[in-house]
Design a protein around this nucleic acid. Sequence first.
RNA 1: GGACGCAUAGCUCAGUUGGCUAGAGCACUUCGUUUACACCGAAGGGGUCCAAGGUUCGAGUCCUUGUGCGUCCACCA
Length: 879
Amino acid sequence: MKELSKSYNPKEHEDRIYDMWESTNSFSPDSLESDKKFSISMPPPNVTGTLHLGHAAMLAIEDLMIRYRRMQGDKTLWVPGTDHAAIATQAKVEKILLEEGTNRHKLGREKFLKRINDFAQESHDTIVNQLKKMGSSCDWSREAFTLDETRTKAVRSVFKLMYDDGLIIRGDRVVNWCPKCHSTLSDDEVEYKAQRAPFYTFKYDKDFPIAVSSTRPETKLGDTAVAVNPKDSRYKELIGKEYNVDFCGQKLKLKIIGDRHVDMDFGTGALGVTPAHSMVDWKMAEENNLDVVKLINEDGNVHEGFGEFSGMTAKEARKRVVEILKEKELIEKEEEIDNNLSICYRCDTPIEPLPSLQWFIDVNKKLDKFKGKTIKEVANQVVREGFLGDKSKKINIYPERFEKNYFNWMENLGDWCISRQILYGHQVPVWYKEDEIYVGLEGPKEKGWTQDTDTLDTWFSSGLWTFSTLAQKPEDIKIENGRVVVDTDDFRNFHPTSVMETGYDILFFWVARMIIMTTYAIEDIPFHDIYLHGLVLDEKGKKMSKSKGNVIDPLVMKEKYGADATRLSLVIGSAPGADMKLSEEKVAGFRNFSNKLWNISRFILSSYEKSGDGTFVAETEADKWILSKTEKLVLEVTEDLDKYNFSKAGEKLREFSWDVLADWYLEIAKFEKSDNKANILYYVLEKILKLWHPYIPFVTEVIWGEMDSDKSLINESWPDEKSDKHETSNQFDLIIETVKAIRNARSVNKVEPAKKIKAIIYAGKNTELLKSQEVLIKSLRTGIDSVEIKESGEEIKNEIFTSVGNLKIYLIGAIDMEKEKERISKEIINLEKQISIISGKLSNKNFVERAPEELVKKEKERLKGFESELKAFKKQLEN
RNA sequence: GGACGCAUAGCUCAGUUGGCUAGAGCACUUCGUUUACACCGAAGGGGUCCAAGGUUCGAGUCCUUGUGCGUCCACCA
């Protein structure tokens, strides 16, 4: 017999339990031997901040999968790690410096980098500690960082391989430039903000034949052409002509060109071409050999050489240009239009497209090693049918609908700009000496070589995550026969990883890039399945943000309600890929459940003792019933978990634990106490603790520790429904129906508690069954004092009457005639409604002929049942 | 402009290939402290399944159209 506290207090146990798991190496796959392997690479949290609900959801789901597979006996590995998050981390440190009244230039390169590294280290320690708080059973001995030595080796190896294959190229192109971050951004890092903007239609000068329209007239200072649609009759004849114009005091040379992409109906149908500051215009300039005039510099200001405009910000220049145009009366129209402002996804600063010498990954280069396919095509095919058509190497996305998004993105993918002008990150592994260039894993030994000062887009290194994390040291990563090889047992055991579980918001940023980079570098898929979870929103469905003040901190939830409740609230009640709304009440609800489970266990452990070797037989109907329910539960939960139906399985577990076990079987057990019963209770408890463990590892492990077990629950094996067969039966369902009917009738009649009530049940062919359960029927909070069960008898007038199928139940001793009449009338109305529906169905020839036979039979039986009930109720009402 | 998703009880959502009286949690009403649990127990109320058509013996479920909301991608200068 055990003494347990009245309610479960997570704080008393969680840290202790986690330490126990860790100190017993329970997270390591090394001692597990199995042909079945299971592995997940944890999406590495950024070392910029603290754990948020998105992380918590990720951890809850991944830990659930990992613990489930581990208990299934698979050799299971979950590799944890963190991401250096280049721009984000540097920006954060710069902000801190600003608050301290200094900046990176004052500090100098070395000191600045040290500051970032120190910050990253501190941030890392915080977040790792928080990952542990949520109960994550990942193998910390294999922890990785996107910027550590081993991952650096992977990055440089892949870079070199790509460079040698001609996939990485250096080019002067128009890129997305953030004047605040002072760096390039990839196309995916550009966000759009809808706005209303003034839209000016004007002529460059009064002699120029065509008016153009723009929301950014200041950029027209950099125009070298005007493009019109070659089919446009208004301008057709002007194509090919050149003009010298005086635009706001600046001399421009403009050529009229024809381009079929120009929309004749938009604005004036003519477009001022600004090659240096627009992607589209850049392409037109290339095709038409136009001059490129650089107008805006990297600070977002106008370059020297533009007279009064030089040094102005773009905004100032715009204002001035409009002023001048107005003075000269060149503006034909000024209107407000809807348009999209490009902004930096990190700092919301408007993007300035400008030409710059950068490194790119050419996604459209046909590769010999892929039989002429491009890396983009390979990445596409791997989700459609498998790696180079190999069906065993196909990646499945759950939920499936995201596959369409993936294909759409992949097909529209342009070259990926990978160089960034920030200090924190993987420095581009390219060295220069005068005109020479060297690309390699290490720089040349001789003097005079200097390394490229740019760093790589953070997604370059995280794109290698699944395989780079399976290397333990830099030497494990090699280039052999034109591919990257990871020479470790971990790689051989665990790659491709089983599942990539992450939020759908980084499907493109990260998941798609992992597929591209991995299929290219190691010529295999990074993972078999992709499971995408949704975003965690506040209870109103809005994104959580500090400025809105609607942030729910998972660690605060953990403190208040426990890690288990927090995890459950993120797993149950949300569909894969769907956003989930979370409120504190929901977490509190699951705290209530963990306490319920605690008390279920407390009752069993303190009132019953396991006897002998724990074997038992199904003695009573209730025993057979609970064993049947348990067997079904194990089967269904296992099946659901295999299909990633975490929410559904969790709901089934909750229903079983609370509604079946606690509300019925435990109540029954109070009246049927025996050694055999005790053993059944222990048996069922063990099953549900195991089934619950992946969801709520702490409370289940604590309870498990109170049972006589030689292993901790984390190391136990998953219930195997096939190995233990017991006699099962669902006959007890009828008893439950009966008890409920009695309770209902009694409750509605509000019988005074003092009155003695006798129940008389005419049970027909169920007489024997009912008789065997007489004691229970009386005891299970039915409020009756005695019960008499007969096969049949006369109806009893002026007493409470109810029925269950063919069972007729009379409660003798007290009746409120008004209430009873009301209740019976209601029953009759309901029954009549049902009968008319079913008889309508059955009189329909088509239904009888075409519907499955079973269904028709079932409906006939139902009709018979309802009719006999109706008859009984009607008679009772007459009396 | 292209695509996707959602619309079911007051709220948050389940509802698998069409087939029991459309379910759960929270909230609500009434009753109840019977030695696991008030973070509890019992009983109950509450839904024209967004609208209109269509397919079918049968539609919350499939098809078409529409409305409202949300998301992603592209982007017009």
